[in-house]
Amino acid sequence: MSVNKEEAAPVARLICSRINRTVGWVYRWNTSELSILWIGAARTADHIDPPLRPDMLAAAQAVTSDEVTRFLEKLSRG
């Protein structure tokens, strides 16, 4: 049985330290997939608040693109 993405909840903010602003949000779907909602055209983040837990990242790796998980993992490590 396949699980469809039906709802998501915000789990972290993506922040650009240069301008000290939130530039995006990380959402976790009911499927454990992680996705990013960017705010505006500037898609540059160098900080995540709060860092994502290793178990959340591991669950997402099975259903989220490698590019997204690598990016979020890098930010979560600091």
Rank of each mutant, 00 (worst) to 15 (best):
Val3His: 07
Asn4Arg: 15
Lys5Gln: 13
Lys5Met: 12
Lys5Phe: 11
Lys5Pro: 02
Glu6Leu: 13
Glu7Leu: 03
Glu7Gln: 07
Ala8Met: 08
Ala8Trp: 04
Ala9Pro: 00
Ala9Tyr: 08
Ala9Asp: 06
Pro10Ala: 08
Pro10Asn: 07
Arg13Ser: 11
Leu14Gln: 06
Leu14Asp: 12
Cys16Gly: 00
Cys16Trp: 06
Ser17Asp: 06
Ser17Arg: 07
Ile19Tyr: 15
Asn20Phe: 07
Arg21Leu: 13
Arg21Val: 10
Arg21Thr: 12
Val23Cys: 04
Val23Phe: 03
Val23Pro: 02
Gly24Cys: 03
Gly24His: 13
Trp25Arg: 05
Trp25Gln: 05
Val26Leu: 01
Val26Phe: 04
Val26Arg: 01
Tyr27Cys: 03
Tyr27Val: 09
Tyr27Lys: 11
Tyr27Gly: 08
Arg28Pro: 01
Arg28Trp: 02
Trp29Val: 05
Trp29Pro: 01
Asn30Ala: 11
Asn30Thr: 14
Ser32Asp: 13
Ser32Leu: 01
Glu33Ile: 09
Glu33Tyr: 00
Glu33Ser: 14
Glu33Asn: 12
Glu33Gly: 10
Leu34Cys: 03
Ser35Val: 08
Ser35Cys: 15
Ile36Met: 04
Ile36Leu: 03
Leu37Ile: 04
Leu37Asp: 12
Leu37Arg: 15
Leu37Trp: 11
Leu37Thr: 13
Gly40Tyr: 05
Ala41Phe: 04
Ala41Leu: 04
Ala42Glu: 15
Arg43Cys: 11
Thr44Ala: 13
Thr44Cys: 14
Ala45Arg: 02
His47Phe: 12
Ile48Asn: 02
Ile48Asp: 00
Asp49Met: 06
Pro50Arg: 03
Pro50Gly: 08
Pro50Trp: 05
Pro51Gly: 10
Pro51Asp: 08
Leu52Phe: 04
Leu52Gln: 00
Arg53Pro: 09
Asp55Glu: 13
Met56Glu: 11
Leu57Cys: 10
Leu57Thr: 11
Ala58Asp: 14
Ala60His: 03
Ala60Leu: 00
Gln61Gly: 13
Gln61Pro: 01
Gln61Asp: 09
Ala62Arg: 12
Ala62Met: 11
Thr64Ala: 00
Ser65Leu: 03
Asp66Ile: 10
Asp66Met: 08
Asp66Val: 12
Glu67Cys: 07
Glu67Ile: 11
Glu67Tyr: 07
Glu67Arg: 09
Glu67Ala: 14
Arg70Tyr: 10
Phe71Gln: 09
Leu72Gln: 05
Glu73Ile: 02
Lys74Met: 12
Leu75Gln: 10
Leu75Asn: 11
Ser76Met: 00
Ser76Phe: 05
Ser76Gly: 10
Arg77Thr: 10
Gly78Lys: 00
